[in-house]
Design a protein around this nucleic acid. Structure first.
Lengths: 241, 241
DNA sequence: TGTGAGAATTTTGTATGCATAAATCAATGC
DNA sequence: GCATTGATTTATGCATACAAAATTCTCACA
């Protein structure tokens, strides 16, 4: 078991925080899969620290629902069951819709320019799924930030964060088709926002997210029973949004 | 300073968790005001424990944004500035609107019955502001639960939770008027939900929340500058919703 | 009076130790 | 062969110890 390295100490953070970030990242990226047991002692050994900062990291992971923390029984990477996942997808769909509506009225000229530029840039990147995912994420980020409501933005961001393990890019069928359909829907959203048409932006975003999430849900339900497993076990569960 | 008592150990919780709950409650209830410094050692003494569980509680409070946790400088009860407060009010307004829309379609007959019953009961309680606040909270809880989306429900619940310090009942002008106006708007919401008219429920809830929150915001902005203070300092900042 | 350097004190961050609950394993009885 | 109970081991919860950072205090000096 190799010793894991922590981000440099340059920033004024505490060990517990850096460990939290490290573990959170591994969960999000999918290295630590749902159901995985997190043992204080071995984590401490891996990071080369004592159990104390590890315990604090686990506390925070628990508070942020990234792990389930049962008293006297340690932590387990949160299982997101299909019902919960559907809830989250639906919530994300709706909240991003809200953000799009607000963004249509509130984005500054600069923000709108940024959005347009990003969207145009996306047109040139229709082959790499990975690259497209990055641009897509920024697309949604920009719109949610454009709502100028830090609470909604934060909520949407957290949802995307927690959902990201279920959206890992994967060379699937018809990459170009998936991407171009998404890009088309994005166009409608961008147009509505640039025009300042709030309700249209709202609807466009909801339709877009609904379609994408419906696909994800179908994929999910067509799988036997993830049970003890999580994303990364059952393969082929990703979608371009 | 008197030693604070913790909830009984009957449930299988850890000290850190109970301390977290205790402090969180004091923040929400307004005993611990924004800007208040939380010192590990004195908290440990107050609760009669060592610093370790206190630190874990602070970690969790920080993760849940109830306190600001600056490395090597301890915790401070989160200041909610007026911009942030406005954000939260707006987010609450919108998300509860979403919940109302979903609830109109998804509430079971029993849930609808419960909602109607509660609303009728509220009609008989038009004098006690405190009692009204309780019923009101349950009203919003019921609707958000009725959306059958635990993510949205949880988000709305958390927002109400964090906003509650700004809604402490206070014998203000025209109690009966404030209550009856709210009750009237509640009637519209209930009617729409019982009829299963989603869009009408959505609009009714948003209009209701927008009005209430607008009032709260006006009250807030008419105050000089809360600065170092928080709710509970600047008096008379509450509203019936 | 105000200011700044440096000492003293307080407070946080981390490590370590110990008690107890949980999990694991063994052996016994059926 | 399998379940059950008791012993052993392991892991967690909490307390304590200590080092380093931050804050406060002191006092000389302009």
């Amino acid at each position: 078991m190799k010793k894991k390295a922590l981000r440099d100490n340059d920033a004024d953070t505490t060990l517990g925080t850096r460990i939290y970030e490290s573990i959170a990242n591994e969960i999000i990226v999918g290295k630590l899969m749902p159901g995985h047991r997190l043992d204080e002692q071995s984590l401490a050994t891996q990071f080369g620290v004592s159990r104390t900062p590890v315990r604090e990291a686990l506390r925070e992971l628990g508070a942020r629902r990234l792990i389930d923390l049962v008293p006297r029984r340690g932590g387990v990477v949160t299982q997101i069951g299909s019902e919960k996942l559907i809830d989250m997808l639906e919530a994300e769909c709706e909240i991003e819709g809200l953000c799009a509506r607000l963004a249509a009225h509130r984005m500054t000229a600069m923000e709108k320019g940024h959005l347009r530029e990003l969207h145009e840039q996306a047109a040139g990147e229709e082959k790499s799924l990975t690259r497209y995912f990055e641009i897509n994420k920024e697309f949604h980020d920009l719109i949610c930030a454009g709502a100028h409501n830090s609470t909604l933005d934060g909520t949407a961001r957290e949802l995307r964060f927690r959902l990201s393990p279920f959206r890992r890019p994967e060379p699937s069928t018809d990459v170009v088709g998936v991407i171009s359909r998404s890009t088309g829907e994005h166009s409608a959203i961008v147009a509505a926002i640039l025009a300042g048409e709030a309700e249209r932006a709202y609807e466009a975003m909801r339709v877009h997210n609904a379609r994408v999430n419906l696909g994800a849900m179908k994929l999910l339900q067509s799988q036997p029973h993830p049970e003890e497993s999580g994303p990364g076990n059952g393969r082929s569960r990703s979608q371009a949004s």
